[in-house]
């Protein structure tokens, strides 16, 4: 049995080496980086596979099937369907039998599509439409007006209008409908065209916002890694 302290120290060394190699990609691709990348893919894939077996396949398929085989009180139809569907999906292992697994893949796609539709309606479309309907801060506007803060009330209206314009013009940017004009190329409505141009400006601003978010997270990760390297190397060299 390896002592826990030694395991931690070895772990820190391994982590520091892997961090250094991965960060060295900044200077260009090289074989050691590729080697580390393959290690990462292998470890991540193995971990994901083990979790899938441990949390889903064993409790939902193997244990109930064993219970059924040993005469336990389980839902025979349910377990039968699970075993049957799983067996059909496993036919995908061989190219010769793969076509028998197509209906199961189709079931997964159908269920996924239905969940995506339900999620898009309930999780995105309705909440976003609901929030868009409250784009103007009516309560704040009333309060500012009653208090005589006309500048602030005007600001609330302007902010609401700008947010509304941003939303509508962004949607207009993705509108590709055009009127047919005989033998001439179809032309987009002028109003939609102007809105789409404004939409492209707002989209550029939004992409910059998202970009800055990712960049700042990356910077956070870089700072954390450099700090880790510094503290590990300091500890190794016995520096305070």
């Amino acid at each position: 049995m390896i002592p826990a302290e030694l395991l931690i120290q070895a772990g820190l060394l391994v982590a520091a080496a892997l961090t250094l190699v991965t960060l060295s990609y900044i200077f260009g691709d090289h074989p050691v980086f590729r080697f580390v990348l393959h290690i990462f893919i292998g470890a991540a894939a193995g971990y994901a596979g083990a979790i899938a077996v441990q949390d889903v396949i064993l409790p939902q398929l193997v244990f109930p099937a064993i219970e059924l085989a040993s005469g336990g009180n389980v839902d025979v139809v349910d377990i039968g369907m699970r075993v049957g569907l799983s067996a059909l999906l496993l036919t995908k292992l061989s190219p010769r039998t793969a076509r028998f697994g197509n209906p199961v893949t189709a079931m997964l796609v159908g269920v996924g599509a239905a969940l995506a539709i339900g999620g898009a309606i309930q999780g995105t479309l309705l909440p976003q439409i609901n929030t868009s309907a409250q784009i103007f801060d009516v309560a704040g506007f009333d309060l500012a007006l009653q208090g005589g803060y006309y500048g602030e009330s005007l600001q609330i209206i302007l902010q609401g209008m700008l947010a509304l314009l941003a939303m509508v013009s962004t949607l207009a940017y993705f509108h590709f409908g055009a009127e047919a004009r005989g033998k001439q190329a179809p032309l987009r409505n002028v109003l939609v065209d102007v809105l789409a141009w404004a939409g492209s400006v707002f989209i550029a601003i939004t992409l910059a916002t998202l970009f800055s978010g990712v960049l700042l997270s990356g910077m956070g990760a870089l700072t954390e890694r450099l700090d880790f390297l510094y503290s590990t190397i300091s500890a190794l060299l016995g520096m305070p």
């Binding site: 239905a114 898009a120 976003q128 509508v168 601003i205």
Partner: peptide, 23 residues
């Protein structure tokens, strides 16, 4: 104000695209 409105438009667009693909 600026990014939120456009992000809302993008999200609604993505949701409409998801629904179309699902249907």
């Amino acid at each position: 104000v600026l990014a939120l409105g456009a992000m809302r438009g993008l999200l609604i667009g993505v949701a409409l695209g998801t629904i179309t693909t699902g249907v």
